[in-house]
Each structure stands twice: as structure tokens, then as C-alpha cells.
Computed example of a mutant assay.
Amino acid sequence: MISRRDYLALCMAVGAGSVLAPNHLWANEKKQGLITRPIPSSGERLPVIGLGSAATFSSAASAHDVDALKQVLQAFVQEGGAVFDTAPSYGASEVVAGRIVRELGISDKVFWATKLNVAGYGGGKADVEQARAQIEASFKAVDKPVIDLIQVHNLGDLPTQLPLLKALRDEKRIRYMGVTTTFPRQYEQLEQVMRTERLDFIGVDYAIDNRVMEERIFPLAIDRGIAVLAYVPFGRTRLWSLVKGHEVPAWATELGIRSWGQFFLKFVVSHPAVTCATPATSRVKNVIDNMGAAFGELPDAAMRERMAQHIQSL
């Protein structure tokens, strides 16, 4: 294992704005230093950085760019990643990724997190048979007898869809269940279901410039023992636009940060309520860079505020 001094020197050599695959000088340190968090309902530990399949991943899947996504998923697992977040509504992502995972022989290394919602975004009623059909399509896509996690997407018709997930969990066809939303108008409803249902997970939007979850949702998740998947940790493209033309501050190297992506991700996963952040990408260099945030040190409360204030000053 190389010393921390040598590791930081290597990070400086790589440069804050570049992304290179890890080499033999620090591979052993990375392997032993993977940051994980427990799922409160079971104690099972997950790496704090996952992989999402919306946005560019979905675009690549829809364009049938299988080779690119195969490289992404292979690099993701090689770098220590596990949580793959997808949904039937993400175009071809679920089907394409399921096929790739099987072809690569990494099914046992991927924590498969998908979603259920046939109610749509307008608050309509879900058809039970359609919902069951969507669930079975997800099982077919992943081709495993047990799916790790299914969540009701955007709180779609919970009275209809949540009981289906409860039954699947009771039958041990899924290991965990939960709900998601990235819509502020649904936050109050999210709080209500967190208080009244035995959820294993929630999935919500959270970023260094979007900290609403810290006020009520995160404290409630800690109190209720619910794992949190942090979605859109880059604010979709918002944060990239904000930092364009700016260098990562030198003091961030204290945490082993060598890119803006790692800066944003380390902030997100340093909150004690967050189990895993799931940035989406279709590029190998990005997935390797993102996974770099799962190693080294995480910011403490004082450093978190310094990081947030720095972003606010840009």
C-alpha cells in the first residue's frame, strides 16, 4: 500500500481536470479503502458510489451502443461499484444492461435496483395486471430469480403498486422495496409514506446546491432506518455549467479529490443519511472518475460547509 503522501502526489500529477484509469501504484490502496454504508434494515453494506442509467446511459442504450455500455459496466464493477439503478421508463436501459451483465458474467456482483410505475406522472391509477406485467418484464431483463430492489417510481399510485412490492418482498422474490421521487411537490407525500410504511429504501434528488432533503427527509430516513439512494448528484447538468472554467480548489486534495465530479460526489455521500449516490454516465473515463469518490476520506461537517460555500461563491 502506498503512503497517503505518495497517493496525494499521484493525484496532483494526474491533475484535477483529467481522468485516468487507476494504475498499479495505487490499485491496492483503492481495493482496501472502498467506502461502504450499511442498509439499515439488514446491515448489508453497499459501496457509496453506484451507477445510474437515465440520461446519457439511456441515450446510448436507445442508440444500441452496446459496446460502450459494456465497457462502462465492466469498469464500474472492476472499480468496486455494485449498485446499478435503472427503471422500465429509462428507454432501453434496463433490457440492454441486463443483457450486458449476463454476458459479462457479473450478475452476482451487481446490486440491481429497478422501479415500478405504470400510473404515469399525472397521478392516474395503475392497472394491477399492467403493474405485474412490468415487474415480470424486469425479472426477464435481469434474468435472476431474485431482484435486489424495486421501488415505486415517483410515488405512482401507492395504494395499488406498493402492496405488489410488499408481496414480492414477503415471497422473497425481491430483497428490498422502497419509493422514489425527484419532484418537490411530492416531498410531503414522501414523508407520509416514510412514516407509515416499512420501507427499506427511498430514492431522492440531492446535490451540493440542492440540500432540501437535509431539512426533513434525511433526518426522518435516519430515524426510520431507511436507506437513501441519492439521485442527480450533479444537478443533471446544472453543476457542470456552474463550474465551467473553474479549477477544483487546491484544498480539496486533502480528501483525495482530483475532479469536480469527485468533489460533488464526496459532498453527497458524506451526509450520514446517504447510502449510495447513483450518477449516470455512458463513458468509461467518467465511471472510473466517479468511483474515485468511493475511496479516501470523506468531508466532515466543517469541510462540507466549506465545499458548499465555495460552490455558492462561483
Rank of each mutant, 00 (worst) to 15 (best):
Val128Pro: 15
Val193Glu: 08
Phe183Ala: 14
Trp112Tyr: 08
Thr114Gln: 12
Asn117Phe: 06
Arg173Lys: 14
Ile135Met: 06
Pro159Ser: 15
Leu116Ile: 10
Val110Lys: 00
Arg198Met: 12
Thr182Cys: 07
Ala113Ser: 12
Gln192Glu: 14
Gly123Gln: 13
Gly91Gln: 10
Leu168Tyr: 06
Ala141Ser: 13
Leu149Cys: 05
Gly120His: 06
Trp112Asn: 03
Leu158Gly: 14
Gln130His: 07
Lys144Thr: 04
Ile147Cys: 01
Lys125Cys: 06
Gly156Val: 09
Glu94Trp: 14
Gly178Cys: 06
Met194Gln: 08
Gln186Ile: 08
Ala97Met: 02
Gln192His: 14
Ile106Glu: 01
Gly156Phe: 04
Leu164Arg: 11
Tyr187His: 09
Phe111Ile: 01
Arg198Thr: 11
Ile150Glu: 03
Glu94Tyr: 13
Glu188Met: 04
Leu149Met: 11
Lys140Ile: 03
Val118Phe: 04
Glu171Gly: 00
Ser89Ala: 14
Met177Cys: 12
Thr182Asp: 02
Lys166Glu: 08
Ala97Trp: 00
Glu191Asn: 13
Lys109Pro: 01
Glu129Cys: 05
Gln192Phe: 03
Ala141Thr: 03
Asp200Ser: 13
Leu158Gln: 15
Tyr90Arg: 09
Lys115Val: 04
Ile202Arg: 03
His153Met: 12
Asp148Cys: 02
Gly156Asp: 05
Arg185Met: 13
Arg169Lys: 15
Gly98His: 03
Leu168Trp: 06
Ser138Leu: 07
Val142Asn: 00
Val142Ser: 00
Glu94Gly: 11
Gln186Gly: 09
Asp157Pro: 12
Arg102Lys: 15
Leu149Ala: 01
Ser93Met: 07
Ser107Lys: 09
Thr86Leu: 03
Val95Phe: 02
Glu197Cys: 15
Pro159Phe: 15
Val152Tyr: 02
Tyr187Val: 12
Tyr176Met: 01
Ile174Val: 11
Gly105Val: 07
Leu199Glu: 04
Gln161Phe: 05
Ala131Tyr: 03
Gln186His: 07
His153Arg: 13
Thr114His: 07
Leu104Asn: 04
Thr182Glu: 11
Val142Ala: 08
Gly203Asp: 07
Asp108Trp: 02
Leu164Asp: 06
Ser93Lys: 13
Arg195Trp: 00
Gly91Ala: 09
Val179Leu: 13
Gln161Arg: 09
Ala113Glu: 05
Thr182Ser: 04
Ala126Ser: 15
Val96Phe: 11
Arg173Glu: 04
Lys144Cys: 07
Gln151Gly: 05
Phe183Met: 14
Arg132Ala: 02
Arg169His: 12
Leu162His: 07
Asp85Ile: 06
Gly120Ser: 03
Gln186Trp: 08
Val146His: 08
Arg169Val: 12
Ala133Lys: 08
Gly123Tyr: 13
Arg195His: 12
Ser89Met: 14
Gly124Val: 04
Asp148Val: 01
Arg169Ala: 15
Lys125Asp: 06
Glu136Asp: 01
Leu155Cys: 05
Ala113Pro: 09
Asn154His: 05
Ala92Ser: 15
Leu104Pro: 11
Ala87Ile: 12
Thr160Val: 11
Gly203Tyr: 09
